[in-house]
Amino acid sequence: MAAAVAFEGVVALLDRFPALAGVDLTVQAGEMVCLRGPNGAGKSTLLRACAGLVPLRGARAEVLGFDLIADRRSVRRHVGLLGHRAPLYGDLRVDDQLRHCAALHSAASAEVSAAVERFALGGRLTAVAIRRLSEGQQRRVALACLTIARPRLWLLDEPHAGLDESSRDALDEMLAYAVEAGATVMFATHETGRARVAAARQVVLAGGRVEAIAPAPRTDGPTDVA
């Protein structure tokens, strides 16, 4: 099976600073991988690099078969990136935002309804403008949009942040379902418990490099750490 992500000696300079300083990483298609490391380790940059949003150099930088050194744009329609800020239109109502996402990705109404139910976005909430939602509610809308988009590669930066426990559980179920359906998932987190429950492997970054790769240890439940 072809790798979803294949990086060899990948370097990314942000204002001349090496945010990625020679990353070697292979993620197989259909795998779920957790990125760990302190702030500034390069986790967010690595996710953005996989989404084709960061200029790269190196021996090899391929995502879903696309050469990101030669062409960063072509991969973008195949990946879904959720960063710290939800990519939403503040003036749209929740239901309009979801319909807009469905139209962009040719999703059926049943898929929208399933996303609404999964992230508890029904009832009076559907008519509320995005800008009037709490941070957690906006993140739920963004996750629903990601579900509707059905990307081949899911890239999530601290995906559980701002969510209540039921929404966190819904997110974990959604990611597991995505992997079962053949998608690949990479997410960065500081929450040890969530990483252990969800991911098959954890990749530890430090100083813009991959410091260690190991099977994710298992636990009976989520345990948050700083």
Results as ranks from 00 to 15, higher is better:
Thr189His: 07
Leu25Asp: 00
Asp96Pro: 12
Arg139Met: 05
Tyr89Ser: 13
Ala107Thr: 04
His190Lys: 05
Pro18Gly: 10
Leu175Glu: 08
Val185Lys: 06
Val112Gly: 00
Gly208Cys: 06
Arg72Ile: 08
Val141Cys: 10
Asp169Gly: 04
Ala216Gln: 04
Arg218Lys: 14
Ala129Ile: 00
Ala199Tyr: 05
Ala149Asn: 02
Ile213Cys: 12
His105Met: 02
Ser167Asn: 12
Ile148Met: 06
Glu31Val: 02
Ala2Val: 08
His160Gly: 09
Gly221Met: 05
Leu175Asn: 01
Ser113Cys: 07
Gly90Asp: 12
Leu153Ala: 01
Leu88Ile: 02
Val75Trp: 02
Leu171Glu: 14
Asp157Thr: 11
Ser109Cys: 00
Gly162Gln: 08
Arg209His: 09
Arg57Ile: 02
Arg140Glu: 08
Val33Asp: 00
Gly182Ala: 12
Gly83Arg: 08
Val204Trp: 13
Ala70Tyr: 04
Cys145Arg: 10
Lys43His: 06
Ala12Thr: 14
Ala41Met: 04
Ala61Pro: 11
Asp67Thr: 03
Gln137Asn: 10
Val5Asp: 06
Pro159Gln: 01
Leu121Pro: 09
Gln97Val: 01
Ser74Lys: 14
Met1Val: 12
Ala212Tyr: 02
Ala198Thr: 10
Ser109Gly: 08
Asp157Pro: 03
Leu121Glu: 07
Ala51Tyr: 08
Ser44Ile: 01
Ser74Pro: 08
Gln137Gly: 06
Leu156Cys: 10
Leu121Asn: 00
Pro55Asn: 05
Gln97Thr: 06
Glu173Gly: 03
Ser113Ala: 15
Val10Ala: 12
Ala114Val: 08
Gly162Met: 10
Gly22Val: 04
Val33Pro: 02
Asp24Leu: 04
Leu205Gln: 09
Leu146Asn: 01
Gly37Cys: 03
Arg48Pro: 08
Ala29Met: 07
Asp91Lys: 03
Asp96Gly: 07
Asp164Gln: 10
Arg152Asp: 15
Tyr89Met: 07
Leu35Pro: 09
Ala129Lys: 10
Ala4Ser: 07
Ala216Trp: 05
Gly42Met: 04
Val141Leu: 11
Tyr177Asn: 13
Ser74Arg: 15
Met174Asp: 10
Glu62Met: 06
Pro55Met: 07
Ala3Cys: 03
Asp96Val: 07
Leu171Arg: 00
Val179Phe: 05
Asp220Arg: 13
His105Leu: 09
Ile130Asp: 03
Ala199Gln: 11
Val128Tyr: 07
Val5Pro: 04
Ala29Lys: 13
His78Glu: 13
Cys50Leu: 14
